[in-house]
Design a protein around this nucleic acid. Sequence first.
DNA 1: TTCGTTGCAAACATTTTGCAGTTTC
DNA 2: GAAACTGCAAAATGTTTGCAACGAA
Lengths: 130, 130
Amino acid sequence: MKERRSSAKRDAILEVICSTDTHPTAEWVYTMLKPRYPGLSLGTVYRNLSEFRARGEIISVGIVGGQERFDGNTSQHAHLVCTKCGAVEDIGISSELDSGIVKEMEGDTFESESYRLTFYGTCKNCKNTG
Amino acid sequence: MKERRSSAKRDAILEVICSTDTHPTAEWVYTMLKPRYPGLSLGTVYRNLSEFRARGEIISVGIVGGQERFDGNTSQHAHLVCTKCGAVEDIGISSELDSGIVKEMEGDTFESESYRLTFYGTCKNCKNTG
DNA sequence: TTCGTTGCAAACATTTTGCAGTTTC
DNA sequence: GAAACTGCAAAATGTTTGCAACGAA
């Protein structure tokens, strides 16, 4: 793997992702950091997010409303995606369910390394206001 | 819902999707039908796929390698996505696992309507050749 | 001095859309 | 004839990339 030099901007990008539970987009990260780093470029955000994802330092929740959503919480958990407002929430899953899911793949010719479990529906907020 | 008139092209698009297990992209559908319907436009494919998806006649597997993948099999099942070649395969899940997953959501403030379970890894083909 | 990192803007790829012509009912 | 459907091409969108300047080791 390539040598990695220290970079305040990269550190800040990771920190922003890890200190929120909103499952942000690249653009959101950029908007959050721009005031603090006026010279920041959107390309830099994209480049660092891709690298974090490739290294497993963050995970991708998938694409919601056309934009990729990221998550600094890399432990195994599922997600709730609101199809009305696009909000993404975490939901813990029991270890029984996790092992049940993992077991489903054992012995298959397909070699699975990870899985993603996503629920689609309406979040509390949209249910009340809508 | 809007009135729906008969259309040979629309029928063909749905038929192509339902008669393959490759989980095609819009472009693939277009390429497959273009010889038979020389006047076919990519926009028409996109429009009809969106409508099918909205009506629940097909489901979206999600975006793989930047392109949305579709599935004419609308019964509950999981998917395997090869991170090397982008192949998507179906995998049936036991009814016990399905109910375990559904149960995980019961009582939550989030109102879930569906879920998507996707495994990521290496397909048989890539494992052997790579 | 080396080479990783970044800003900038152009390039890219997929998907969406406006509009005018066509087809279905 | 009204309204749905389509082709076409332009637009919109999110993301990637080439390159020169910058910065860390």
